[in-house]
Amino acid sequence: MKINTSEFIISAVKREQYPVDNRVELAFVGRSNVGKSSIINAITNRRKLVKVSQTPGKTRLINFFLINNDFYMVDLPGYGYAKVSKKEKASWGNTVETYLTGREQLKRVVLLVDCRHKPTGDDILMYNWIKHFGYDVIVIGTKSDKLSRMNLMKSQKVIKDTLKLTSEDKLYFFSSLNKEGRDELIDLIFDDVVESKVEENK
């Protein structure tokens, strides 16, 4: 699949602020500093589609981006930043849970984990949360340019074991810096979901 156009549509906190046009949605979620903004910019080939915050944990909004005038990429707020207060963490949880609860337009969630580190308790919780709500999930290990091929193989095992991924679960590594495998990643994330939507509308 080729991404030709991408544009910011709206930032939302409440359900009534979400788009209501029933386009398919694919959401991205991960810890603060995992490189979520960078990977969305790399996928869309737009350097500043998503602002890369210098302050981890700052974003508390759900951002909707319209792709090819056809479907939405949804940027969920990052989690796990230690300096965020309990009140802010609760607010994040409510915002994300509201979005994940019964969102029929949402067809897949992309969970980003830093491939240099073992997935945290928050990552495990997020993965299980996605599964609990019944969404298809793809796990992407970010910042893969920082590891050698051998260490990437070790990271793959650690991520699979920690998140308890099955042979059917999808795990992919990507670097927003060198963008190697970008086209394959786009196909992995979007192709079957977008194609199935097209088939349904025939």
Rank of each mutant, 00 (worst) to 15 (best):
S148L: 09
S148A: 06
R149T: 13
R149D: 14
M150K: 10
L152H: 14
M153N: 11
M153D: 13
K154M: 11
K154T: 08
S155I: 01
S155G: 02
Q156E: 15
Q156M: 12
Q156L: 11
K157E: 15
K157F: 12
V158G: 00
V158K: 01
V158N: 03
I159S: 01
I159P: 04
I159W: 13
I159R: 03
K160L: 05
K160Q: 14
D161Y: 09
D161Q: 14
D161C: 08
T162L: 03
T162Y: 00
T162F: 07
L163G: 00
L163D: 04
L163Y: 10
L163V: 12
L163C: 09
L163K: 09
K164Q: 13
L165Y: 14
L165K: 02
L165Q: 01
T166P: 06
T166Y: 02
S167N: 02
E168N: 13
E168V: 04
E168I: 06
D169W: 03
K170H: 10
K170A: 04
L171G: 07
L171S: 04
L171K: 06
Y172R: 02
F173D: 02
F173L: 00
F173P: 02
F173C: 00
F174L: 04
F174S: 06
S175G: 09
S175T: 01
S176E: 04
S176I: 07
S176Q: 03
S176F: 08
L177H: 09
L177C: 01
L177P: 02
L177V: 15
N178R: 13
N178H: 07
N178L: 02
